[in-house]
């Protein structure tokens, strides 16, 4: 079962996404701020990280940046889900290594589709990666 970490400071969003993803057979862990997310990331490797941008303790960009700089997490699929609409921030998120960006309010179906796509991509990539090793 793929492991997903969801980081958002809105508890309603956290619960809702958790429910929706659970139903579709994903294992979901939630964090409500940047610090909690970092602690979780230290111990477990996730397949997908879904993060908001404005978070207490550390912003979402930092989460993205740290993930990409960490060897264990380099291949994590990162989806940024945020209500921030300004272009610069979005480009910055991609520049730091986010795979996808969804603007709130989101469509649940779309989120699921993108998660599946990322996981599929990732699987092919890891195969390649392990072979090379």
């Amino acid at each position: 079962m793929p492991n997903i970490l969801v980081v958002d400071d809105d508890d309603i969003m956290l619960k809702a996404i958790k429910n929706i993803l659970n139903k579709d057979g994903f294992n979901v862990v939630t964090a409500s701020d940047g610090k909690e997310a970092f602690e979780l990331l230290e111990h477990t490797v996730y397949d997908i990280v879904i993060t908001d941008l404005m978070l207490p303790h550390a912003n979402g960009l930092e989460v993205v940046g740290k993930l990409r700089h960490n060897d264990a997490n380099r291949n994590v699929g990162i989806i940024v889900v945020s209500s921030v609409g300004n272009e610069e921030t979005i480009t910055e998120a991609f520049r730091l290594g986010a795979d996808d960006y969804l603007k709130k309010p989101i469509m649940a179906g779309e989120l699921l589709m993108r998660i599946r796509k990322l996981i599929a991509n990732k699987n092919s990539k890891t195969q390649f990666y392990t072979k090379k090793k």
Binding site: G34, M54, L55, P56, H57, N59, V84, G85, N86
Partner: peptide, 11 residues
Amino acid sequence: VRSLLTFNYPK
């Protein structure tokens, strides 16, 4: 400084 960097504000 970390705390200052995490305001809810876009710009």
